[in-house]
Design a binder for these strands. Structure first.
Length: 611
DNA sequence: TCGGAGTAG
DNA sequence: TTTTCTACTCCGA
């Protein structure tokens, strides 16, 4: 199991496009801040999230590029994801944000362990293709590739010492092979795509991710066994590794939890109720608290953690979860790539937005971006809004279809902190209102800007009025428009991904690979962490959508007998929040949109049907 | 289902 | 330490 983390990703996207930038200090600007910068810039003292003004002062010759348009980053991320996926068996590649990827290579490692020649480890061959034994790379299986944690103390001549060691311990051998695979993939990524990455090699996403931070950039770290303490007086390498981290560095333990934990550890202030909101007296960074500080605190365990962190609003079993995390236990799966995002949102921030007209204009721009993104990410088929050969026009339109229809539209705003007499108000939270997505939004032939205009006037502005009934004087600092609640439309079957039942069984099978399981006395309480909450959804959705539907336009008879589809649409016929405009009727045969009877003929004109 | 909170990159 | 543009998950009502 490994994590890839592309080094300073935004900057790397520009560098890959224009390699000259690689040797210069490069910073990516969003609004007034440096979103990220390359390592040359960091060497000169620049930091992420620094004000551009300060950055220029510190490093006057910094090259600054604008990175507010995320499309290039999104595209590069998808490309790299696809590139890596081609190497990994069983599609076990999960993207986290734009610049991180988890790879579950269990199956590949198991296969290669079997084929290892114990008599000539020096000249081993890693197979990347079960069907073609020539595909792969040579490697030296007498030692780990790259740095390890703890650092290797082996002398350079280690054939004697490593070889039996690795074979005694199955986990050690598997991690060793994985370290070579990691090296290989990093090389491929660098030489074929021009991106460097940092990688962690371990048995869970949590451990791999933290390990990946140890040697950055452009390097890798393998977390060595033993993963289970050898005796009561011993510590496992997991404990050693986890203990050294600041508590807030653990993924899943964010700002709020850190504050509550620190309040307890540092002040052991038992008066602090579980849900007293952290005030400005909340503990700040002078006092570092490590995982060890928490883990070894008197009476520490799931129960005490639940008392410290639990309460209304907290996750269920938060104590158990956090106890698991600080003990290095993470049983979450590497999820295979999702075909459809669960939400698409577009936002922009503003100095202050105070007039209705300014708000309206801003919303139209956001709506237009949102519609473009919906078309890019939720449709399938060749559609190019700009250039289209005339004769092909109709044939290219008819091939474009929605993969999913979002049902809910959401407007969120954030107001500027009121700045009342010295007291900095802690209210930079967002507020939101939702409404159904109007069906006209799915009309692929309408001009984006026209649709945006219409969406704002017919839907978004009324949400805005609910959110801000006052006539003016909202000090808006942010607007966000989003669509959520995706309902997938009929699959064109073939390679519609993620919905594949065979794949799900295959996953289950690999889930049971024994060497992946983290076990041990010290965290026996957290074995079935999350099993209930994660196992579910793929299957549920798969069941609902597995049946291939509508490879072509169906006959009316097919439409009416398609129960699953009808169910979806019943779902989709959500109540209209204002009670108006809810004369739904049948789903359109071509795009799945619900169309009122009176409009169905007109609607269908939008589709040119192949027969 | 909605709206908010929390976390992450 | 609140400055960017997102995206996901969970909780209570």
């Amino acid at each position: 199991m490994r994590l890839q983390d592309y080094d300073c990703f935004y900057a790397s996207v520009f560098e890959a496009e224009n390699p000259v930038l690689k040797s210069l200090p490069l910073a990516v600007q969003q609004k007034q801040i440096i979103a990220t910068c390359n390592y040359e810039a960091r060497r000169r003292g620049l930091k992420k999230l620094q004000l551009v003004r300060e950055a220029k002062k510190i490093c006057p010759d910094v090259v600054i590029v604008l990175g507010e348009d995320l499309a290039p980053f999104r595209d590069a991320s998808k490309q790299l994801h696809a590139f890596l996926r081609a190497f990994i068996w069983g599609d076990r590649v999960e993207r986290l944000g734009f610049d991180e990827v988890f790879l579950d290579v269990t199956e590949m490692i198991e296969y290669n362990v079997e084929l290892l020649n114990a008599h000539d480890l020096l000249h081993s061959f890693f197979h990347l293709d079960k069907l073609d034994p020539t595909v792969g790379f040579a490697f030296d299986a007498t030692k780990f590739s790259g740095p390890t944690f703890p650092p290797s103390t082996d002398s350079p001549v280690c054939i004697e010492s490593c070889f039996p060691k690795a074979f005694e311990d199955p986990l050690r051998l598997r991690l060793l092979l994985a370290s070579h695979l990691a090296r290989y993939l990093r090389d491929q990524l660098e030489h074929q795509k021009g991106y460097t990455a940092s990688v962690g090699v371990s048995t869970s996403k949590l451990l791999a991710k933290l390990a990946g931070n140890v040697h950055k950039p452009s390097n890798q770290t393998t977390l060595l066994p033993p993963y289970v303490a050898a005796g009561p007086e011993e510590e496992s390498n997991i404990t050693r590794f986890m203990d050294a981290h600041e508590i807030g560095k653990i993924p899943g333990i964010g700002y709020k939890l850190v504050n509550r934990l620190k309040a307890h550890i540092l002040c052991h202030d038992s008066d602090v109720g579980p849900h007293e909101t952290p005030t400005r007296t909340s503990v700040t960074d002078n006092n570092k608290v490590t995982v060890r500080d928490v883990r070894c605190f008197a009476n520490m365990g799931p129960h005490l953690l639940e008392k410290i962190l639990g309460g209304p609003g907290s996750s269920r079993d938060i104590g158990t979860k956090v106890w698991g995390l600080i003990n290095g236990v993470d049983t979450t799966e590497v999820h295979t790539a999702r075909k459809i995002p669960t939400q698409i949102s577009i936002e922009d921030s503003y100095g202050t937005l105070d007039t209705f007209d300014a708000v309206r204009k801003a919303l139209v721009l956001l709506a237009a971006s949102l519609i473009r993104r919906m078309r890019a990410d939720l449709t399938e088929g060749e559609r190019d809004d700009n250039k289209q050969a005339d004769e092909n026009k109709s044939s290219s339109i008819k091939r474009t279809r929605w993969l999913a229809h979002p049902r809910t539209l959401r407007l969120s705003t954030r107001t500027r902190a009121p700045e009342v007499n010295g007291t900095r108000n802690h209210i930079f939270n967002r507020v939101s209102r939702s409404a159904p997505v109007p069906r006209f939004l799915f009309n692929l032939d309408e001009n984006v800007d026209a649709l945006a205009e219409r969406l704002v006037h017919e839907s978004i502005l009324s949400m805005f009025r609910k959110l801000h009934p006052e006539r003016a004087g909202w000090h808006l600092s942010l607007l966000n428009v989003a669509v959520t609640n995706m309902v997938e439309t009929a699959g064109e079957s073939k390679h519609s991904n993620g919905r594949d039942i065979g794949k799900m069984f295959q996953q289950q099978e690999t889930n049971l690979q024994p060497w992946k399981v983290i076990d041990g006395d010290d965290h026996s309480t957290v074995h079935d962490l999350q099993s209930a909450s994660t196992a579910n959804s793929e299957w549920d959705e798969g069941k609902l959508h597995a049946a291939p539907r509508f490879p072509h336009a169906p006959s009316p008879a097919e439409t009416s007998t398609d129960d699953v589809f009808a169910d979806d649409m019943a779902d989709a016929a959500w109540e209209d929040s204002d009670g108006e405009d809810s004369t739904w009727s049948d789903p359109c045969r071509f795009c799945g949109t619900l169309v009122p009877h009176f409009a169905s003929a007109a609607h269908e004109l939008y589709h040119t049907v192949p027969e």
